Amino acid sequence: MDVKGQAAIVTGAASGLGRATATALAAAGAKVTLLDRDAETLDAVAKEIGGLAAPCDVTSADSVKEAIAKGRDAHGAARICVNCAGVVHGGRIVGREGPMDLDAFSRVVQINLIGTFNVMSQAAADMLTLEEQDEGERGVIINTTSIAAFEGQFGQSAYSASKGGVASLTLPAAREFAPKGVRVMCIAPGIFETPMFNGLPQETLDALLAKTLFPKRLGKPEEYAKLVLSICANTMLNGETIRLDGAIRLEPR
């Protein structure tokens, strides 16, 4: 799919991977609707790239419905949907004070997994009604999992479970939407320069980077965005999760 002139939705667009993706899509000529809870920052980013800010809570069906409708009214139904919204929570399943707080576990699953499903399903409902383009394609959905979905470390149970769910959505969704020409892909980033990792102690980051084979650095959000553009352009990519991680493999701790 040539993204130029196409309507696109990006969640988590106020910062990190989402912001870089929204910026790259806009630079390539897409009409981008930016979704995030941080309305003030979202508005500033939208103005910067010439996109449309649609503040929303991805865990709310009504909030997402309103945001997608706002984008549809301005740009038409989106053919591109990229889900980057996510949070992390560290902690043992059973710690010194007992079992992990269930609300904390639920919040991570609600945002990372249910939020992704919420936006994906509502965006897909629009895509399935669009006219076919080259090779019968109607749209592409790109979700964001994590290498923690496959190699979750000690203390990452909530995050790993939520991201494992996102990865597992890829193939059944791709199979369901394939007859109507909508592709579903998933990206599993490693250690990236995002607010999620910027808050880690330097010694923790150094230990993670030591496990990265090449390049030995944090990934750049712009590199994630480049992969998004490549997935959009390559119609053969469907139903798969791509690791973007410098060949890092996480150990138990």
Score class of each variant (00 low, 15 high):
residue 2 D to S: 01
residue 6 Q to P: 02
residue 12 G to C: 04
residue 13 A to T: 06
residue 15 S to V: 06
residue 19 R to L: 14
residue 24 A to Q: 06
residue 24 A to E: 11
residue 25 L to W: 07
residue 25 L to R: 08
residue 29 G to W: 08
residue 30 A to T: 03
residue 37 R to Y: 03
residue 38 D to N: 15
residue 43 D to W: 00
residue 47 K to S: 14
residue 48 E to I: 01
residue 50 G to H: 01
residue 51 G to I: 02
residue 55 P to F: 12
residue 55 P to V: 04
residue 56 C to E: 04
residue 57 D to M: 07
residue 59 T to W: 08
residue 65 K to T: 12
residue 66 E to V: 15
residue 68 I to Y: 03
residue 68 I to P: 08
residue 73 D to I: 05
residue 75 H to P: 07
residue 81 C to V: 13
residue 81 C to L: 04
residue 82 V to L: 04
residue 85 A to C: 03
residue 92 R to D: 15
residue 95 G to K: 00
residue 99 P to W: 07
residue 103 D to T: 11
residue 104 A to Q: 12
residue 104 A to H: 03
residue 114 I to P: 01
residue 116 T to P: 10
residue 117 F to C: 02
residue 122 Q to V: 10
residue 123 A to I: 09
residue 124 A to H: 07
residue 128 L to I: 15
residue 140 V to C: 14
residue 145 T to F: 05
residue 151 E to L: 10
residue 156 Q to D: 10
residue 157 S to A: 15
residue 160 S to Q: 05
residue 162 S to R: 05
residue 165 G to P: 10
residue 172 P to N: 02
residue 175 R to H: 13
residue 175 R to Y: 06
residue 176 E to V: 12
residue 179 P to Y: 11
residue 180 K to N: 13
residue 185 M to P: 13
residue 186 C to I: 01
residue 193 E to M: 15
residue 197 F to G: 00
residue 205 L to F: 03
residue 211 K to W: 09
residue 212 T to W: 01
residue 222 E to K: 07
residue 222 E to R: 05
residue 224 Y to I: 01
residue 225 A to L: 09
residue 227 L to T: 06
residue 227 L to A: 09
residue 235 T to E: 10
residue 238 N to C: 00
residue 239 G to K: 13
residue 239 G to M: 11
residue 244 L to D: 07
residue 246 G to L: 12
residue 247 A to F: 09
residue 248 I to V: 14
residue 251 E to P: 00
